[in-house]
Design a protein around this nucleic acid. Sequence first.
DNA 1: TTTTAATTGTGATTTTTTTCACTGTTTGTA
DNA 2: TACAAACAGTGAAAAAAATCACAATTAAAA
Lengths: 206, 206
Amino acid sequence: MNKKISEKAVSRMTLYHCILTDYINKNIETISSPQIASLLNIDDSQVRKDISFLNNSGKCRVGYLVKELKAAIEKTLGFTKPKNAIIIGAGNLGMALAKYDNFTNYGLNVLALFDTDATKIGTIVNGKKIYSIKEFKKLAQQMKSDMAILTVPREAAQDTALMIVNAKIKYIWNFSPTVLDLPKDVQVWNENLMGNFLQFAYKMQD
Amino acid sequence: MNKKISEKAVSRMTLYHCILTDYINKNIETISSPQIASLLNIDDSQVRKDISFLNNSGKCRVGYLVKELKAAIEKTLGFTKPKNAIIIGAGNLGMALAKYDNFTNYGLNVLALFDTDATKIGTIVNGKKIYSIKEFKKLAQQMKSDMAILTVPREAAQDTALMIVNAKIKYIWNFSPTVLDLPKDVQVWNENLMGNFLQFAYKMQD
DNA sequence: TTTTAATTGTGATTTTTTTCACTGTTTGTA
DNA sequence: TACAAACAGTGAAAAAAATCACAATTAAAA
């Protein structure tokens, strides 16, 4: 239906969305491309080009209507279609993500957690139960999870990922600092916090 | 001294680094550009171009020496110079980051945490003390922190960021889902977990 | 009412990034 | 030793992304 939007443009749109949410909280009704551009230190024509993908139009001398623009981004980025996910690895990060209530607003529905630690199994975190990893295969089928959020330690990541793939889950949001070696039809999104820090640290050198 | 490496290339190098770490753990001594490229689904000449920035040379018919290449990335990306950081916001995410021991290996040294919650103040997390945000200005000076890791709720993010800037900290790693409006000499790295999820979700649509 | 300034939208241009295509080298094999 | 295969390295070409530049529009000010 629509042209494909580049990854970079999508990334910027998520930042526009943050800005728009703030503007709504502040009861500001319009926003201009130079305003957005200035907050992000980018070119204003870039902002307009990105917005042109959304079939949303602005008004000269006024800018864009905040609510409309926000809705247009949400529609294009597709958070209207909720995705079900399970978290594998109930360590600090997994728990933090399970407790992150914002997810629901963005169409991410966390169904359950899995872990190997016997003391954690059976516990409820933010309404989500922690199951034994042994039950994973059986439950993954039942739960119809679209996506797995992988927050296990690096050493366990590859094997756990293979287990996820065996359970016919094709999308993995990988928080382990490792590159998974999986069939090409499985899509992996590497979060790589350490890598992101290194990128920032590299910028700091200037 | 060296040419500046693009952000995208740096991002890829952090993934190469992950792969190299895995190879070392597996006691594999050499790696070729097609091997790296295949794991990341990118072009092998891209990998070689990136590596050409590192002043590291490979061997025909053999590839690169894993240890050398890893060291070269570390040198270029500068994790040899450790950075001191403080975490502001001892919620789930802040705590998870404080407990993330890997940071030290990558040159990120977490000095302390700050929070408003009286029940948390004084607690020690992974050897790091949680202080009252009221003491922030005074302690920030003493601690000589290069960087602040911002993990407060969205509503508090902007004000907290201003406080950080007042304490003369110029680098903010922002985990709050909001775009901070700060002087242009302050560098902000937006982590934006929700945004990253949306990017992944957009890819899932295909 | 006229003018001014701010803003969108977009084609053209420039810059950056990626991919291609090829040369030269090295290692293992016949 | 000769040959084949697997690589690195790199200049050139192609593709993608960002920026520029400007016409058209409109709200507000004069």
